[in-house]
Amino acid sequence: MYRRNLLGASLAAVGGFALSGACSGAALPNGSAPTVDALPLDTPSLPNSALPTGSCDCHVHIFDAERYPFAVERSYTPGRAVVSDLLGFEGRLGIERVVVVQPSVYGIDNAALVAALKELGTYRARGVAVIDPGVTTEAELRTLHDHGVRGVRLNLEVKGQRDHAVALAQLQRAAQTVAPLGWSIQIYADVDVAAAMAPTIAKLPVPVILDHFAGVRVARQPEQQDAFETVLQLVKEGNVYVKLSAPYRASRQTPDFADIGPFAQQLIRTRPDRMLWASDWPHTGSASHRDGDLSRVEPFRKEDAGRALNNVLAWAETSSVRRQILVDNPARLYGFAATAS
């Protein structure tokens, strides 16, 4: 059964939650909060057809500096994007479920993430946290789990982490920490970094998710072709999921990013049961364009997530594969309730 189910609802605000040892601070270095309400958010195009019941957007962020200050140690200051904005965005697309991912600006203070999960409820939302395995206690992990967190994120791209030994150590430690909870590990890194870690990833006791087309950079092909082939084999073996998300991070061919299509199609044909779709809402900027001025509020990108979703629907080719990508795969990975087909 297919339908367009709007998420929009009036939800009460809730209190926050923070891990002990969390790195939080004022939104700006001088302790003041940025003025961000005036920055507009995008309005996506409508999908070409109604989406399957239970469709999931597997990568969105919440930014609410007024209630939950950003970490002092961060690389940028984003605008405001809160749950009510998210509901309007997903409602227009016809998306019923979301995975809220901890952004780098909050460090390991997951208060804003947990507050968003409380507002959204566990029927429609799951979370991906950022933790420090050396600081976060077992009780705190259990509390995160109870609120709907089902994974942790390693953001190697923002940190510019290209030392493979360090990245591998972080990955293995994260796996040991989250395996007892049945969580996954989400990695944001270039495809060559992911390929270098492939032998370790293949042996991990937890699923691994590669962000944003597995870190492909079309402009760096064919030099990354061997790395892509390695990751493709890793996906074929079944331990790795890939988010077909944020094509603007992989390609510069706006507005349709056609050159990422062949990579997406190879991934889908290799393991359609390991593909996920995500909008990357509200589309934060790129680290390569940041100058270190945290007093300046960085505007969100003007990206059309509906147009990007239509590309994924076309690449999927059949209704059964579209349902796998939008419903079945995220339900299995993040523990959503099954839906009728």
Rank of each mutant, 00 (worst) to 15 (best):
S10F: 07
L11A: 00
L11Y: 07
L19D: 01
G21V: 01
C23G: 08
S24Y: 10
G25T: 06
P29K: 08
A33T: 14
V36I: 10
D42R: 05
S45Y: 05
P52T: 02
P52E: 13
C58K: 00
H61G: 11
E66D: 12
E73S: 14
G79L: 03
R80H: 10
S84T: 07
G91W: 02
L93Y: 06
L93V: 01
I95S: 13
V99G: 02
V101S: 01
S104W: 03
S104Q: 11
Y106R: 09
G107T: 03
D109V: 01
A111C: 01
K118T: 01
R126F: 09
I131Q: 05
V135S: 06
E138W: 09
E138F: 06
E140Y: 12
T143L: 13
G151Q: 08
N155D: 15
L156M: 13
Q161I: 15
L168V: 06
A169Y: 10
A169N: 14
Q176N: 11
A179W: 03
P180E: 12
I185S: 10
V191Y: 01
T200P: 00
K203T: 13
R220L: 14
Q225F: 02
L232T: 02
Q233A: 04
E237Q: 14
R249K: 02
R252C: 04
D256Q: 06
D259C: 04
W277V: 04
L294N: 08
D304Y: 04
T318S: 15
S319H: 07
S320V: 14
R323W: 06
I325G: 06
R332V: 10
F336A: 08
A338M: 05
